[in-house]
Simulated scan of single mutants.
Amino acid sequence: MTHRASEPEIIGSRFNRTVCVVVWAVAGIMLLSAFFGGGEATLRSAPTIALLAYAGWVVLWRPNLVITDEHVSLRNVVTTVVVPWSALIQVDTRFALTLVTPGHRYSAWVAPAPGALTSQRMARRSRKAENENPLERSSDGRSLPGELRGSESGDAARRVRARWDALIEAGAVQTGTADTTPVTRTMHVTVLGVLAALLGLSLTAALI
């Protein structure tokens, strides 16, 4: 069967990016306050403000999950992990969206499973939707909190599984080679270096 190439899907955390905007707003207010405090106050505060804004980007905005016809890529805070479809054996959501390969588990920073209170609220909403519209009832039989519709882990897992199933059905995934298919893991050296430099400047400015 011929497989028609699909566009990559990029998934980010809605919650994390909302928090990041708040962090950037706080950093902007701090910078404005330092500016009105004079040149010395601005110079002393600038490294800390820059650290706050940059850390917000690194931890909250930059991480994502990318689904392509070749692999699933998890760009987390410290590393990026690229898992080819041939290496994947399971998609788990117990604590977060987790790609399982022989001997390894790789969790997505952008797709955590919901907490207890959030799970209860989502479960009530899901049951209400099912009662109002039987077509909305889940057919996969999964009941873990991380599988709930509307949760970042559950929604991301469904998109990963949908692409995986489509590729397998089209014969685009080589099966039986999970043990020998390499997974690429790259450390974000430059990003961590910038964070360390900004932290050092912030500490220096605070001690001057």
Results as ranks from 00 to 15, higher is better:
68 T>R: 00
66 V>L: 13
70 E>Q: 12
138 S>P: 04
123 A>I: 07
85 W>E: 00
147 E>Q: 13
105 R>M: 05
98 T>C: 06
69 D>C: 04
63 P>L: 12
102 P>Y: 05
110 V>F: 02
105 R>A: 09
143 S>D: 07
95 F>K: 11
96 A>S: 09
81 V>T: 07
59 V>I: 15
69 D>N: 04
91 V>W: 05
80 T>M: 14
58 V>H: 11
69 D>Q: 03
144 L>F: 13
133 N>V: 10
135 L>G: 05
113 A>Q: 00
136 E>T: 09
147 E>W: 13
115 G>K: 00
78 V>N: 08
114 P>A: 03
114 P>C: 01
107 S>A: 14
130 E>Q: 08
146 G>D: 02
144 L>I: 11
58 V>S: 12
126 S>R: 13
76 N>R: 10
65 L>V: 09
132 E>P: 09
132 E>G: 07
87 A>T: 00
60 L>D: 04
122 M>V: 05
132 E>Q: 09
87 A>V: 00
138 S>R: 11
125 R>Q: 11
73 S>E: 12
61 W>T: 14
101 T>Y: 06
59 V>F: 12
67 I>M: 07
119 S>Y: 02
74 L>Y: 05
61 W>E: 07
57 W>S: 11
111 A>R: 03
109 W>C: 11
60 L>Q: 10
71 H>D: 15
92 D>N: 08
77 V>W: 08
65 L>F: 06
